Amino acid sequence: MHRLTYDDIQQATGRTTGHVRPVTLAPADPTGAYELWLAMEFMQHTGSFKARGAHNFLAAHREAGTLPAAGVTIASGGNAGLACAWAARRQGVRATVFLPATAPHVKVARLRGYGADVRLVGTEYAEALAACEEFAAATGALASHAYDHPLIAAGAGTLLEEIVERVPGLDTVVVAVGGGGLFAGVATAARHHGVRTVAVEPENCRALHAALEAGRVTEVPVDSVAADALGARRASETALAAAQDDGVTSVLVPDAAIVDARRSLWDDRRLAVEHAAATALAALSGPAPAYAPAEGEKVAVVLCGANTDPGDLVDPR
């Protein structure tokens, strides 16, 4: 297992600077108890944080001279595939993306718009991943991963570097977790800066939470409104290692809270984000929040993606 280090984050920062959009930070309405900032990473290229890891992954292989003529391939529920296709086009290589047939149509259409060869296989991420692995073995294409690769996680961690630069004195970063690439990168950088990390998962997509309870990576069932982006059956070993450090808190939120948080972002700010992005904010919401910041705590919530159909945000009344 590769233990992610702050040096990995720094190298990724060198590769991504000038190639990804710097995150926008917006102060939320005063709560009276703590200071809340929204890290609007859904404004990133391809609509999610995944562009950071994808660019870092391919740029590192370009540096090493290991980008094959067959291009790159990835299995993805959507956002990682979009980022891979975007980064591949920028590097001038071919991308073949495998997705479950249940992937949102908006993501499939955008993938094809980036010039990717899209293959729809099965109904779950694991089935798409198996097909992707077969394709890589047969063609020699470079296999990327939606979250379980140190270069992918390190690229995602560059986000925290930008957040602490823009919010001096940050105490806590709150981030949604699927397979754990974003979490592992952010938590690694946060530990270096003395910032605590809150890892948030839907109650029924709890791969990291279950791994922490078991003391090892374990497979979990997937059933959540946010499963299209957070529906990994297993967290990465890198994510588990990061989660076992001091300064990390793992919490679960119900789907109802995720839906409410997503709607509130639209109603209050006209921000249309996907359920995965609202999952992080859901941890702070409601009368009994999963994570309750202390008085005076300075908190940044990562809104990680916006590849969604906003039609269900409009009140038919």
Rank of each mutant, 00 (worst) to 15 (best):
A242E: 06
A95P: 00
R270I: 09
A101K: 14
G181Y: 07
N204K: 15
P316H: 01
E274W: 12
H145V: 04
G140H: 07
P30Y: 05
V301F: 09
V273Q: 04
V301T: 10
A199P: 08
L284S: 07
M43F: 14
G65N: 01
V177C: 01
A137P: 02
V225L: 04
R216H: 08
G71K: 05
A26P: 03
G122H: 12
G122I: 11
K50Q: 02
D223V: 11
A290Q: 03
F57T: 01
S48Q: 09
V177K: 00
G181F: 07
V314M: 05
A130R: 13
A280F: 13
L151C: 05
P293Q: 01
V20A: 06
V253N: 00
A189W: 02
R52I: 10
V314H: 10
E295P: 07
A176Y: 13
P100I: 04
L159S: 00
A282P: 09
L111P: 08
A103Y: 08
A138L: 08
M1C: 10
A229E: 14
H149Q: 13
D228P: 03
P287D: 12
T188H: 07
G65Q: 03
H192A: 13
A85C: 00
A199G: 12
R196L: 04
R21M: 05
D315C: 08
T24E: 14
C84Q: 09
D245L: 15
A153V: 06
L82R: 03
D309H: 09
A75Y: 12
L67Q: 03
D315S: 11
T279V: 07
G286T: 03
R52L: 09
W266Q: 05
R15N: 09
V200C: 09
D8G: 06
V118E: 01
A290W: 06
D268K: 09
S285C: 14
N204G: 13
V302G: 04
G305E: 00
A239S: 11
G181L: 09
Q44C: 11
T172F: 11
V200H: 10
T31G: 14
E133Y: 10
T24Y: 04
R52Q: 12
V177S: 00
Y114K: 07
A176V: 13
L240Q: 03
A294S: 10
E274R: 12
E41L: 03
C132D: 06
H19W: 14
T308D: 08
R234H: 14
A214F: 00
V302F: 10
I152E: 03
Y125D: 06
A69T: 14
V72M: 02
G194H: 01
E237S: 14
D245I: 08
T197R: 06
E35F: 03
S285W: 12
Q11I: 00
D148I: 08
E203T: 13
T238P: 04
E213K: 08
A207S: 15
N204F: 15
A242T: 05
H149K: 14
I9E: 04
